[in-house]
């Protein structure tokens, strides 16, 4: 029994780390631009599918992954420059629709440029499972955890220590003041999208050996990352990390103990419950305006 529980916890933390990376993309973009970017899941798909096809074209795996990362980053920057910025007058409703349109477009293009089959990637350290206290752990899970922790550390250093990071935070809080201080808020938004694209691609590259990839994989992964961001409090980076873990753990425990059929519903039940009970998110401190 304890072995089962440990097994579910391992699985929960692993997928939770993936959701956390995706949720970070949602949260960073939201805090920089107040846009909920529903195309975030497509960056995950580009990270996986891009690596698969670059590797199939003969590139060594690390270079292929890098190429996919660049592809996702460019897609994210293109999204900001070509769609979100020109539609900035369309209001919040309009911007939500623009990002949904962009996600459908990216997905449609991926279905044509890549293909519509399932693909996988070799795990970074093979598939031989590690035995830990009676539960098995896929070595790829360790890579995922390590990468997520590194990302968290790097982001923390970037935002807390570096001048650029502080400037980005300042621009998010008060674009006008930031502009007066010589920070261009438009560039900040652009680079935030780039960062979100990179985080998504990383998640897509890391999860593919465990879960396969497909041109439509981004829909559900994106929505679950979004759920994680809401649970953590949209706009809070630590919240996004914690939200990812919460969704991952609850999802795997549900799959293990209750019903694997409703595993995918967990994230969305959590969204609705959080919105009904604690709309600022479990970890958010941002006051929600009541009308």
């Amino acid at each position: 029994m304890a072995g089962d529980l440990l097994q579910f916890l391992f699985a929960g933390i692993t997928v939770g780390a993936i959701y956390a990376l995706i949720a970070l993309g949602f949260s960073l973009v939201y805090s920089a631009s107040h846009v909920i970017n529903f195309a975030q899941g497509e960056f995950v798909m580009l990270g996986g599918m891009g690596t698969v096809f670059a590797a199939a074209a003969g590139l060594p795996l690390p270079i292929a992954a890098l190429a996919a990362l660049v592809l996702a980053v460019l897609a994210a920057m293109g999204l900001e420059r070509l769609a979100i910025h020109p539609a900035r007058d369309a209001g919040l409703t309009g911007l939500v629709i623009v990002t949904i349109g962009a996600s459908i477009l990216i997905r449609g293009l991926a279905g044509i440029v890549f293909d519509r089959n399932f693909h996988t990637l070799p795990a970074l350290s093979g598939d031989a499972p590690l035995l830990v206290a009676g539960a098995t752990l896929h070595p790829q899970a360790l890579w995922i955890l390590a990468a997520t922790l590194l990302v968290a550390l790097a982001l923390w250093l970037f935002f807390a220590r570096s001048l650029t990071g502080k400037a980005m935070l300042a621009a998010a809080v008060d674009p006008l003041a930031a502009e007066l201080a010589g920070i261009d808020p438009r560039r900040v938004v652009l680079w935030t999208f780039a960062l979100a694209g990179g985080l998504g691609a990383l998640a897509g590259f890391l999860v593919t050996p465990l879960a396969q990839t497909h041109f439509q994989i981004g829909v559900l992964l994106g929505l679950k990352g979004f759920a994680a961001a809401i649970v953590g409090g949209l706009g809070s980076a630590p919240g996004a990390m914690a939200g990812g873990l919460v969704i991952g753990l609850v999802e795997q425990l549900t799959a293990g103990y209750l019903s694997s059929a409703y595993k995918d519903a967990v994230a969305f039940v959590v969204i609705v419950l959080v919105l009904l009970l604690r709309p600022s998110g479990l970890f958010g401190t941002r006051a929600i305006e009541r009308v």
Binding site: A83, A87, I97, V98, I100, G101, A102, S103, I104, L105, I106, R107, G108, L109, I112
Partner: peptide
């Protein structure tokens, strides 16, 4: 592709 483009 058409649907997405139309929206954007």
């Amino acid at each position: 592709v058409v649907l997405g483009l139309a929206l954007v």
